[in-house]
Design a binder for these strands. Structure first.
Length: 796
RNA sequence: GGGCCCGUGGUCUAGUGGUAUGACGAUGCCCUUACAAGGCAUAGGCCGCCGGUUCGAUUCCGGCCGGGCCCACCA
């Protein structure tokens, strides 16, 4: 039978949406289970990592729904901030600086609306149990309002300050960025040995990868125990091309005497160490780079150039003047902006910060109260918090994003906050409600936008309608689950915890699950530059959504998984198997008055399969409760295929084919019972396939409109019977031996056996197993003998 | 450099203090009244390496090697 799995899947997706199967009913009396879903950046494409993570999250959502919870499973789009703006700039080939603020925002909103449609379709195509009526966007009014309210509240708590400070700056995006937005990149560069002269004519060499920062040099550092440089300490050194400016030589224990020449020149600001040294030494700041990345007049001969050009130029000039004594190639790591990969510079500018370094210990202690799945992921957060060096810079010099609810008084410079009631505000359009303390009514609106994470860190508050619906918020906050990737533990998880603690004095959720990464088939990270990206839509197209979901259910939560197309094959085979086995069960049970499973008349194979089924239900439920869904999928799959389809179905065929067989009604009942429970346990993984079978073949079993509204099965402990399973194993072992012999004799498996000689270890038990074996393998007569191990001889 | 994770037949994986689960692939047989986009069967692994604990380790401990991720970083 040719099955069009795509048609089946589309049919049920439309049905679910039409019948609002995944609707969250806030009036329900069931306990709520809420999920703080990760809002993907609107880019128009769903990548494999999305498909993987959302599917894993969906397993949990579907399980919880069946387990009796009213599941709150929303979806969010992150269309706020820098990532979104950069995506649009790239797509359109534009830069924000060439547009007015208004125009630029308009373009971004239009583009993201289009991209969002494509993305939603992609996410729908993998069969997620999302209630789309709960959709939120990180730039929509409620999100803006909450983000601004968060700002006001933090201000009142004394957690916000504004400061002119050295800040990591992206010259390409022309904005300050946060520590968490840094990435490293290894770069080939040259290590320049530059010879300086002291005022009394002695020579000292330093080595640097940033010769272009020389005009900003404010000191030279040497290690206090470095004998070579002892005599230089305290002396003045002449800076080339600087009209005779000199800097002092300092002792500094941070210097590594082994590296370079053992002498370091100190610039404002080459790297984070320079910043620390500036703070320690009270040296002057010479800022030579403008916000747009060009060098200013303080850079002298480098004025107007950008970093790369300036480097070339200064090397050239130093060569000419004889200051450059050596140049060697070096590989070193530079900090780049993760969004645009431009090496960062450190500049001073006025920025808003959230003061939180003082609370590091509290954050670590509180985060320990969360349930982390897997547990070890918490260490990553601890590492991050322990390594924090900066308060959280939340200012971004961008047009697009949530504005600061802040004005500055034109007359006295006082910071004036928006009134809670007027949120969300745009300080460039709106005005404060009151006049300034100084009496002035003239204000300048803050032009910067809030860091994207300032808003994203409020997704629990957004989901729970913090400001819009107090009763709802009280009922819903904190949420139950935050599922997310390990790459953004330091960003999203951390900042969300921070906000929860600041605003509600509570952790924002009870549990955090961390999903792994999707890697390419060789175990490498998928990336556009490596050209190894596999798109989920291609796989859905080639196989089907349930096959993709099958793959997502294989690894343990938190583990990275290489994308293996063979698992799609395996998934599709499994789906076909389910559909075929279900067809069989329907055919042979149709019109049969089902027997009662608790009654007498259960054959050994019935008892064995029912015992195994109930044990499986128990194990599968426990696995799900521990978020070990891969165990659930694996064990149900193996049971369904290797026990139920391979053995049980074969063992009862003669019973169900023969209308007069007295075991027929029982076998029919057991077939349905086992299949139905397997379908229920597989429905979180294969929602389309199981719905198809339930709706087309087992309508009568369905209590509601969908298998996804059914109750998760309960194990009947009384049915678990080790002795029955033991006997079942004997039956299966003998059948397996007979299959081998038939295969070896090149006979079909239904070939009639006139006589079989079977050696078994326990003759008494075998007596009980014999009838099942005879009918399953078409054996007319069996002679049983006692022996050390099971063996079989067949006569045809 | 620091932290975390991983290393099981050709490939990917389950698992456990008593030599091992399944898949994909390979090979052979079989049109068997669910299924040939199938069924059944077969081959294939000193469970990364070296030590230690133990009667016994793939499983526990230590070290090493290899891979991955995060963080820091030499100017």
């Amino acid at each position: 039978m040719a099955l069009d799995l795509h048609k089946i899947e589309e049919k049920w997706q439309a049905y679910w949406e039409k019948n609002r199967i995944y609707k969250f009913d806030r009036k329900s009396k069931k306990p709520v289970y809420s999920i703080d879903t990760p809002p993907p950046t609107v880019s128009g494409t769903m990548h494999m990592g999305h498909a993987f993570a959302f599917t894993q999250q969906d397993f949990i959502a579907r399980y919880k729904k069946m387990a009796g919870f009213e599941v709150f499973h929303p979806f969010g789009f992150d269309n706020n901030g820098l990532a979104t703006a950069l995506m649009v700039e790239k797509k359109r080939g534009i830069k924000q600086k060439n547009f007015s603020r208004k125009e630029f925002i308009k373009i971004v909103l239009k583009e993201t609306a289009e991209e969002e449609k494509k993305m939603r379709k992609a996410f729908e195509s993998i069969g997620l149990s999302i209630d789309w009526s709960l959709l939120y966007r990180t730039i929509d009014r409620p999100a803006r309002r909450i983000a601004q309210y968060s700002f006001l509240e933090l201000f009142k708590q004394g957690r916000l300050y504004q400061r002119e400070a050295p800040t990591m700056w992206c010259p390409s995006c022309a904005t300050a960025i946060a520590q968490a937005e840094l990435h490293d990149r290894e770069e080939e560069s040259s290590f320049c040995y530059i010879e300086f002269e002291t005022t009394d004519g002695e020579k000292i060499s330093i080595a640097t990868t940033r010769p272009e920062l020389m005009p900003a040099c404010v000191a030279i550092h040497v290690h206090p125990e470095d004998k070579r440089y002892k005599k230089f300490v305290g002396k003045e050194v002449k800076i080339p091309f600087s009209n005779g400016r000199t800097v002092k030589v300092f002792e500094n224990r941070d210097v590594d005497p082994e590296f370079g020449t053992g002498a370091v020149y100190h610039c404002t600001f080459g790297d984070l160490d320079d910043v620390a040294w500036i703070l320690e030494t009270n040296l002057p700041v010479i800022e030579i780079i403008n916000k747009d990345g060009t060098f200013n007049e303080k850079a002298g001969i480098l004025k107007g150039l950008r970093t790369e050009e300036a480097r070339k130029k200064i090397i050239e000039e130093l060569k000419k003047s004889g200051h450059l004594v050596k140049e060697e190639p070096i590989k070193h790591v530079v900090n780049v902006h993760e969004r645009c990969k431009t090496p960062i510079e450190i500049l001073t500018s006025k920025q808003w910060f959230v003061r939180y370094l003082d609370l590091r210990d509290e954050f670590i202690a509180k985060a320990a109260e969360l349930e982390w799945v897997p547990k070890y992921m918490k260490k990553r957060l601890d590492n991050w918090i322990n390594g924090l060096k900066w308060d959280w810079n939340i200012s971004r010099q961008r047009y697009y994003g949530v504005p600061f609810p802040v004005w500055y008084c034109r007359k006295c410079g006082e910071v004036v906050l928006a009134d809670e009631k007027q949120l969300p505000v745009d300080p460039l359009k709106d005005k404060p409600k009151k006049k300034c303390k100084c009496g002035s009514r003239e204000f300048i609106g803050e032009k910067d936008a809030l860091d994207t994470w300032f808003t994203s860190s409020l997704t629990p508050q957004i989901n729970c309608k913090w400001l819009e619906d107090k009763a709802f918020f009280k009922k819903m906050f904190p949420m139950d689950l935050r599922p997310q990737g390990h790459d953004i533990i330091a960003l999203w998880a951390f900042n969300t915890i921070v906000k929860g603690l600041f605003h509600q004095r509570k952790l924002p959720w009870k549990t955090i699950t961390i999903n792994g990464w999707t890697l390419d088939p060789k175990g490498k990270k998928m990336s556009k530059s490596l050209g190894n990206v596999i798109r989920p839509e291609e796989m859905v197209e080639k196989y089907c959504a349930d096959a993709l979901r099958y793959w997502a259910g294989l690894p343990v939560l938190g583990e990275d998984i290489p994308f293996m197309e063979k698992e799609m094959v395996a998934g599709k085979k499994f789906i076909t198997k389910i559909l075929n086995a279900s067809r069989f069960v329907e055919i042979v049970t149709k019109g049969v008055k089902l027997g009662k499973i608790n009654s007498k008349g259960l054959e050994p194979e019935d008892r064995a399969i029912l015992s195994k089924l109930n044990r499986l239900i128990k194990e599968s439920t426990e696995a799900f409760d521990r978020y070990e869904f891969s165990k659930g999928l694996n064990s149900v799959r193996n049971f369904f295929w290797l026990e139920f389809a391979d053995f049980y179905i074969e063992e009862v065929k003669t019973r169900v084919y023969n209308k007069k067989d007295k075991g027929r009604k029982i076998a029919a009942a057991v077939l349905q019972e086992v299949l139905w429970n397997c379908l229920l346990m597989l429905s979180p993984f294969l929602p389309h396939t199981t719905e198809e079978v339930a709706q087309t073949r087992f309508r009568k079993r369905l209590k509601g409109k969908s298998i996804h509204l059914e109750q998760w099965p309960m194990a009947d402990e009384k049915m678990i019977d080790e002795k029955a399973e033991e006997l079942g194993e004997i039956i299966n072992a003998v059948i397996a031996e007979m299959r081998k012999k038939k295969t070896a004799a090149k006979k079909p498996l239904n070939a009639v056996v006139k006589r079989a000689v079977v050696t078994v270890t326990d003759l008494q038990k075998f007596k009980l197993a014999e009838p099942t074996i005879k009918r399953t393998m078409a054996v007319q007569a069996i002679e049983a003998r006692k022996g050390e191990e099971v063996s079989v001889k067949l006569e045809f």
